[in-house]
Amino acid sequence: MPNTVTLAGRRYAFGLNLFPATVKYFAGWILAAVVLAAIVPLIVSQWRSVDISAWYIAANAGKYLIAIIIGGFVHTLLPIMVAQGLTRREFATAMGIFGLLWSLFTGVIAIAGFLGERAYFSAMDWTQAVGQDDPGIVLRSVGEALDFAKLYPLSYVLYGTAGALLGAAIYRSDSGWLAILPVVPVTLAVDDAMSHAGAWGPSWLVQFTSVVTDSWGDWGAAAAAVAAIVIGAWVARRIIIDSPIRSKQA
């Protein structure tokens, strides 16, 4: 953080600077995901035909990882930044900027991954199928892959918002983890609506999410996601602004 930053601009500078620093920190993780998604099918193909998208698993695990990273940042950085003389409002704004950039960035990587895998699987004559059902939805062209993946950035923002809300709630109160009760089902349900293959996760968790949302269509699902993001971000901000800084343990 250069010391030329003004008081009025530091919330934006902090949020913006946190983004490249986080990209740098997690670059190895992203690279590992890309490499694994490329190598594992190659290994599997030695014994059996490849008929599932490896990137689908990586991209969906990434949603949870986004939530954990942003939630962890909110939880960890709030006391540090308040101790550095930031107001909670400044911190909330900075985290909003960072969260949006980081989620969109990883979401774009997710789309690129699906398109790259489409080309890779096509060259290897493998089947790029997505979803947890067997058989999954087969992506037969670049257009189908793009259509399937197009809402991933929005989905990542949704999970990032959920993570921020949970991180703030858990910092705010010892019983803040109870926020998972509304946050997780809503997030999974909206994500389910956005994904043609349904929400991804343990079957006991995701099997209930498709009851309401299957018929929403892309635009309806996107609108629901935007609404959930706006409401979630507002609630997270309110929690952050109201949070006392915890005493340090001896």
Binding site: L7, I80, A83, G85, L86, T87, R89, K248
Partner: peptide, 18 residues
């Protein structure tokens, strides 16, 4: 939540906030 004030106030707790 007063940015003009808190930016000029430093509380250093034992072990710091890092």
């Amino acid at each position: 939540e007063n940015v003009d004030v808190v930016s000029q106030v430093a509380l250093v707790r034992e072990g710091g906030d890092f």
